[in-house]
Computed example of a mutant assay.
Amino acid sequence: MRYGILGTTQAHTDDGRPVAVGGARLRALLAALALHPGRGHASGTLIDLVWADEPPADAPGALQALVARLRRALGAGAVESVAGGYRLNARPDDVDLHRFQRLADEGERSLADGDPVKAAALLDDALALWRGPALSDLPGHEALVARLDARHLGARRVRLAAAVALGDPAGALPELAELCADHPLDEPLQALRLRALRAAGRPAEALAAYEDVRTALADRLGTDPGPELRALHAELLGGGGAGPC
């Protein structure tokens, strides 16, 4: 069985057939279990995650009934009882969140090792797993969701860097422009855009983009661009406009 929590909570058989999970409580329970597949979750923790501030009068009994419904939906062996709670009988790679993290890590390492072709393939597979806001059926995880969103943005940035390294800076620029507009203070992202503009033979636009970033950092944070952006700016001023990235 495969599980998806990068968006609405889903379950699929190994051959890709969707499994009807059920209502909001069942989806929340499955999402909570899938956060740490193969690991036991205390009943009290699951109750807090599924019902938040409005637990039923007989919360342990309600959780037991919910687990029974989830087993009927997924199969009797999908959710196992452990001391004091339950666990999802699955491997990390059976859950899209953990598969995304593995693929994204491998893609980043491949690019760092000088293999943009492999990096692009791995990151395409990772990014294809995202179907919407992570953990959308499991409220109360704002800090985790923010970290996952940042990880998603990082994977997109590395995929675009792979595109630039593969000789397609022009193809990467539309998405880079959109991401930079949404994240004007993200210096690594802004630096990648400058490199892509330079590689695409558009140094004047790269210089203008640097000024935009410099102004945004000064106005919002009261700081100057960091060393990477300053070095790129110096290269552009020194005539390195069409050099390699």
Rank of each mutant, 00 (worst) to 15 (best):
L207F: 09
L26W: 08
N89C: 12
A52L: 09
P139Y: 15
G243E: 15
L30Q: 04
D115V: 03
A32R: 01
L185C: 03
A24D: 04
L135K: 06
A76H: 13
R156S: 07
G85K: 06
G167H: 13
G75E: 09
P184I: 09
V79T: 03
L33K: 01
H183P: 04
L148M: 14
A216M: 01
R109D: 05
G201C: 10
D94N: 07
P225E: 01
R198P: 04
L153N: 15
L237C: 10
A199Q: 03
W51G: 05
P55M: 14
P227H: 08
A83S: 03
E175C: 09
L237N: 11
L127V: 05
R159P: 11
G61V: 05
V164S: 05
H141C: 13
L207V: 02
A104C: 07
A126I: 06
R214T: 00
R87C: 14
D94L: 02
D48W: 09
L29D: 02
P133E: 14
L189T: 10
R69A: 09
A208R: 14
D124R: 10
L49H: 11
A172F: 10
A68P: 04
A65D: 00
Q64E: 10
P244R: 15
W130Q: 07
P18M: 00
V82F: 05
S81T: 12
A28R: 11
L179Q: 09
G222A: 00
R27E: 15
L144D: 04
G40S: 12
L122E: 00
A104R: 02
A134P: 11
G16W: 06
T8D: 10
S43P: 06
V21Y: 04
L197S: 05
C245T: 12
A73V: 07
A150D: 14
L33C: 10
D14C: 06
P56V: 06
A155Y: 13
T45A: 02
L29H: 08
C245P: 08
L229Y: 08
A119V: 02
L88N: 04
A28M: 13
E175D: 15
A181L: 04
G77M: 01
G4R: 03
V21Q: 05
G44M: 02
G239M: 12
G201N: 06
E205G: 06
D113Y: 01
L144K: 10
R71V: 01
G84L: 00
A57P: 00
A209N: 00
Q10R: 14
T215R: 01
D224F: 08
D53N: 11
V50E: 08
R151I: 05
A120Y: 09
E142L: 13
